[in-house]
C-alpha cells in the first residue's frame, strides 16, 4: 500500500543523475577517442596522481602494468591486469574523476582517457579509436578471472562444528611479531610503543675527490628530473616512494638504498657488483627495460644523450 509520499522524478532530473554504465554496456554514451588524444588529457588531468605513464605515484592507484602477476606475491592489480570489464573504467572515470573535479570530463575525453589507459597497458595501439560502437568488443585480459563468492562451499563446511577445547596442539611458537616490523603509528599512551628504530649510522666512506660539478648542466638536469619526480625524491627530506631515494646515487653500489624493495633483477645485478658509474647510469636511463630486464622502473627512458648527461649531473649535486 502506497503512502503517496515523494513526487515524480522529472526526465531531466533522472538524466542528470542516472549515469551508471553496467557491464553489458547499457548506458554508454555516443562518442570516441584515441590514446594520442588521451595522453594529453591524461598528462593534464590525471598524471599528478596516476603518473605520466599511468604507473601511479606514491600510494595513488597504478593503472597500468601487472600483467600475469595475480598469482604472485603482492600482485599488481591495474585496469589492464585485473579489471574484468572496460565499462567499469568508463563508468568510474566519467562519474568520479578527475579526483577533486568529478564529473567534468566530456564523453569523448573519457573515451580518450580509457584508450590511453589501454595503451599504457600495451593492450591497443596509440591510434586505435575507441568508441561506443567498438567498446564492447574489447576483451579485458582478466575477464575470466572472477568467480562468484564460493565461501559457503569452500569454507563454511570445513570451519564449523564443535571446536577443539583441550590438547589442541602439542606446542606453540611465536612465528612473527608486529614490533619487528615497526609500522604502527606512534601513540602517546601506547605502553608497547617502540622507540623509532635508530636509523643506521651513515657509513664512514673514504673521502672521495669532490668532482667538479657543471652547475649549468645540473640546472638543465633539474628540468629533466621532473620526469623522474613522480617516483624518485632527492634532497634532505627525500623518502623512498615508488622508486628509491637518489641522493649519492652516482658512483654508488646498485641496490644500496636502505628500506627500498628492489626488483629481483636489480638485486641480482647488485650482487654481481654493479656500480652506478656515469656510464652505467647513462645506459640504464636510455632504455631502462632493455638495460635491466625485470626492473621495476616503469619509465620509457631518456632518448636524448643531453638529457641523460644533464640529469646525472643534477643527481651529483645531492651527496
Amino acid at each position: 500500500e502506497k503512502l503517496g509520499l515523494g513526487r515524480a522524478a522529472l526526465p531531466a532530473e533522472i538524466a542528470a543523475w542516472d549515469w551508471d554504465i553496467n557491464a553489458k554496456g547499457d548506458g554508454l554514451p555516443v562518442g570516441s577517442g584515441d590514446a594520442l588524444d588521451g595522453e594529453e588529457i591524461f598528462a593534464e588531468k590525471c598524471a599528478a596522481c596516476h603518473g605520466d605513464f599511468a604507473e601511479g605515484i606514491d600510494n595513488w592507484p597504478k593503472l597500468a602494468g601487472g600483467a600475469d602477476t595475480l598469482d604472485h606475491e603482492d600482485p599488481l592489480k591495474t585496469v589492464g591486469s585485473y579489471w574484468p570489464h572496460l565499462t567499469t573504467a568508463y563508468d568510474y572515470i566519467r562519474r568520479s574523476m578527475p579526483y577533486g573535479n568529478a564529473g567534468t570530463l566530456s564523453d569523448d575525453e573519457v573515451y580518450a582517457i580509457v584508450a590511453y589507459i589501454l595503451y599504457s597497458n600495451d593492450l591497443i595501439e596509440d591510434d586505435y579509436v575507441l568508441s561506443d560502437e567498438n567498446f564492447m568488443d574489447f576483451e579485458m585480459p582478466n575477464a575470466d578471472g572472477f568467480i562468484v563468492d564460493d565461501r559457503a562451499e569452500a569454507e563454511y563446511a570445513i570451519w564449523s562444528g564443535e571446536p577443539c577445547m583441550t590438547d589442541c596442539k602439542d606446542s606453540v611458537e611465536i612465528t612473527m611479531r608486529a614490533l619487528v616490523l615497526d609500522v604502527t603509528p606512534e601513540l602517546d599512551t601506547n605502553a608497547g610503543a617502540t622507540e623509532a628504530s635508530a636509523s643506521a649510522a651513515p657509513e664512514a666512506a673514504p673521502e672521495p675527490e669532490a668532482p667538479a660539478i657543471d652547475m649549468e648542466l645540473a640546472a638543465a638536469g633539474e628540468k629533466v628530473f621532473k620526469k623522474c619526480k613522480s617516483c624518485h625524491q632527492v634532497g634532505e627530506k627525500a623518502k623512498n616512494r615508488s622508486g628509491p631515494v637518489l641522493n649519492s646515487v652516482v658512483g654508488a653500489a646498485a641496490g644500496s638504498v636502505e628500506g627500498f624493495k628492489y626488483s629481483n633483477a636489480l638485486r641480482d645485478a647488485a650482487q654481481d657488483g654493479l656500480i652506478w658509474s656515469e656510464a652505467e647510469l647513462t645506459a640504464f636511463l636510455a632504455k631502462p627495460k632493455a638495460y635491466l630486464k625485470g626492473t621495476k622502473m616503469s619509465f620509457a627512458g631518456l632518448r636524448k644523450a643531453a638529457d641523460q648527461a644533464a640529469v646525472i649531473e643534477y643527481l651529483k649535486t645531492f651527496e
Binding site: 551508471d20 554504465i21 553496467n22 557491464a23 553489458k24 547499457d26 595475480l70 598469482d71 600482485p75 592489480k77 585496469v79 585485473y82 579489471w83 574484468p84 570489464h85 565499462t87 567499469t88 563508468d91 568510474y92 568520479s96 578471472g145 572472477f146 568467480i147 562468484v148 563468492d149 564460493d150 565461501r151
Partner: peptide, 27 residues
C-alpha cells in the same frame, strides 16, 4: 543487471592464491 562498478570489481574482490578472485563476497 549488476553495474559491476569500480568498488565491486577492482576493489572489494578477493584474490586467491591461483590468481582468480572472488566477487560478491558481501557477508
Amino acid at each position: 543487471e549488476p553495474v559491476e562498478s569500480r568498488e565491486e570489481t577492482s576493489k572489494y574482490t578477493d584474490t586467491l592464491e591461483d590468481g582468480t578472485s572472488r566477487k560478491w563476497t558481501w557477508a
